[in-house]
Amino acid sequence: METLSTPTLASHLRALSALIRKDWKQYWRYPLNAISSVFHPLVWIAPVYFMGLAFSHNGKALGFAQYSGTTDFMSFILLGTMLENFINAVFWGMGYALKNDMDSGVMESNWLTPIPRLLILIGHSVTNLVVTAITSTGMLFFGGLIFGFHPTGDVLTALLPILPMMIGLYGFGFAFAALVMLMREANTMVDLSSFLVQIFSGSNFPVNALPRYLLPVALALPLTYGLDSVRARLIGTTPLVPLNVEMILLIVFMFVMLWIGTAAFRALERRVRILGTLGQH
């Protein structure tokens, strides 16, 4: 039998599966956290629901429709929140998992194993993505029951733009995880960046409602087109640009981000090894 010290594809897959199993076990060890991740996004949404009521007449947000093309602001927000959960899973899954490893004192020993570093990061994100899929489905179900969710388009077509968007996000996640390693701090960076991305990619509102001077930031984020594209396909909102153009942008983003992310990770990881700060936190 091959050992990890003679790396092969099979040994890499074994290491990946061990990482996933470990994270999976650790996650379900705290069942209240799992339950809260279903209901927690609804807590963020509830104030927006009441706010929406305050701006509506007979349950219709006519002002909102002028920007988005739909008066159904709750379906708009629920969908945005669900996609945002996946985006965060890549942020948290990699950058935050590394910080957890640092705090638990296992980072250095994990790093010394003969496994590709990027594989460690991917392994950390897989459980997070599976858990996000489970909890987001639960969130959409309960959110639909409480606030109402009315998809009108084809679900499978709506899934198309998600694929290049998520793969591209991995590139970003690699670079971000390396930054966490260098800075040795994750909470603020993770919270802040994911919150900013959430605002500028329009998870809770159509980006064309942003003040003019902030709109270029939103349009420079590929995630904006991902969210916009899924919404246009599923709940019939007015897209920012034609849907096929959005798809091309997402595919280009996927390749560019994977390339930049991998290069940034390698450079920063090398820097951390030179500094010798891998075991510090």
Binding site: G52, F55, A61, L62, G63, Q66, F205
Partner: peptide, 21 residues
């Protein structure tokens, strides 16, 4: 900012949502 911008979107281009608010 997240909530303020959502309120801005709910207000509408012509401010009709804000009047309703």
């Amino acid at each position: 900012m997240g909530y303020i911008l959502t309120a801005r979107a709910l207000s509408g281009v012509d401010g009709s949502g804000l009047t309703q608010f």
